[in-house]
Design a protein around this nucleic acid. Structure first.
Lengths: 243, 243
DNA sequence: GCCATTATGATTATCGATAATGATAAAGGT
DNA sequence: ACCTTTATCATTATCGATAATCATAATGGC
């Protein structure tokens, strides 16, 4: 109820996304990812509308988007609640994410134009900036945006939402369960630039490998538990090696 | 513009889903999957509202859902258009689907209650019925519902939308590109019951295997092209065997 | 006291109208 | 003729109010 903060996420692709529903979406999303809203907590359309100064319908649209993200569950006339991400779900999503992104990077290396790479470079600069400021939420938003931007180069449009969802829940889980003393600072930036270099050199295999190891390392660093669970869920699967 | 048909899809889980937006959703979805609306065609909120006898906001909600499904693309104030599913995208989604469902079935065999299996049995009966009537669209809806129902038993809730989307686009592709003389009739029913039997016997490995071979066979039967593309996309991937 | 039935309250779902936006066509100056 | 600016139009986005729904509490007969 207290988060009136207006988010300035530059997720828009050039055109002005000053949609009010977009603001509401980011505001609620932020509060969920930062655990300001507990899992299971009720979300009132009218209440949010009043607190953010807009209409119920606008909030509804934002909640619909959050539902796609898997962050809330809408139950008809009985209200909307904040969902939860279990360890096992996060583990499966992480598997999917690694697979998706490494394949995506493999394709991306062949398809990326200089302009694309320029754009990605810009995102890296923004991340460095967020790093300095110390805004870890903004940093995670940018991280997802960066990974998505790379994947987008593969041209596999319909798979983008799958990746979005995967990354979101992985972040959500690690955000809430990371050991307090982890050093989140310097390494990712370097790893990201390594990936970008592979893309520049059109080295698909290298890019795929770099992406894969980057994600695994982040996972290991932020949540060994989740990392372990991911590998466990692979072992239990009789078809791990196929398809 | 001509599809006024009211869909009676029983996708509701007990409670009355007589939502108007739900009707609109199914109506438009049907017309897209049956290719009554071409890829790239514009969808007017007001127009659909008038033709289906509801308000613009109600249509908007339906279009939002279709966007999650990846069946339409909304472009801000510039309108909504029917999306397209490329061969490559369908191929990747099919990969994901096979992997997801076989893993899901593996878990499902251990977790399914008799009531769950009863419900699935009911779906199979409905499918037989749709078969007799010859309603191939209803049949495909029920098929997706059936596969989702099995997957749901795995408890991997956040992954359900991924599967939904995968199955939808696989069906969409095969619907539009199937050779005209294919025999779609008897085999699936049998294959489905085989899967159900494995679940009854709590044979996870068997269920997973059955699901996998079922999907592959359907793919082979309905669209050899897509099946081929799926295997090709695997070969091009340096990490096919890992994760 | 107990069960079925009927109010009540809280919340979403839908509606109709108006505002905001972006594309395109028209106009005007040079 | 050409570029910039302004008007027009088609369409979505937002609003405020009302209807529909579900859960729960209150009621009444037995």
């Amino acid at each position: 109820m207290s988060s009136e903060t207006i988010i300035s996420i530059n997720e828009d692709s050039g055109s002005s996304k000053l949609r009010k529903s977009n603001t509401v979406y980011h505001s609620v999303k932020r509060s969920i990812l930062l655990r300001e809203r507990q899992s299971g907590e009720a979300l009132l359309e009218q209440g949010i509308a009043k607190s953010l100064g807009c209409s119920q319908g606008t909030v509804r649209e934002a909640l619909l988007r959050l539902q796609d993200d898997g962050l809330v569950a809408r139950r008809g006339y009985r209200g909307t609640v904040v969902s939860e991400t279990t360890l096992q779900e996060a583990a499966y999503l992480s598997q999917i994410r690694i697979r998706l992104e490494s394949q995506g990077a493999h394709l991306a290396a062949k398809l990326a134009t200089p302009a694309d790479l320029e754009h990605i470079d810009g995102l890296l600069d923004q991340m460095d900036n967020a790093q300095v400021i110390g805004d870890s939420y903004e940093l995670s938003e940018l991280d997802r945006e960066l990974h998505l931007a790379i994947f987008r180069l593969s041209g596999l449009k319909v798979l983008e939402p799958v990746l979005t969802r995967s990354a979101l829940h992985m972040h959500r889980y690690t955000f809430g369960n990371a050991p307090p003393a982890v050093d989140r600072t310097p390494v990712p930036s370097v790893e990201h630039r390594v990936i970008l270099d592979f893309l520049r050199q059109r080295d698909g295999k290298g890019a795929a490998k770099a992406v894969r190891s980057h994600i695994e390392q982040v996972l290991e660093r932020w949540s060994p538990t989740l990392c372990q669970a991911m590998h466990d869920s692979l072992e239990g699967d009789p078809f791990a090696g196929e398809v």
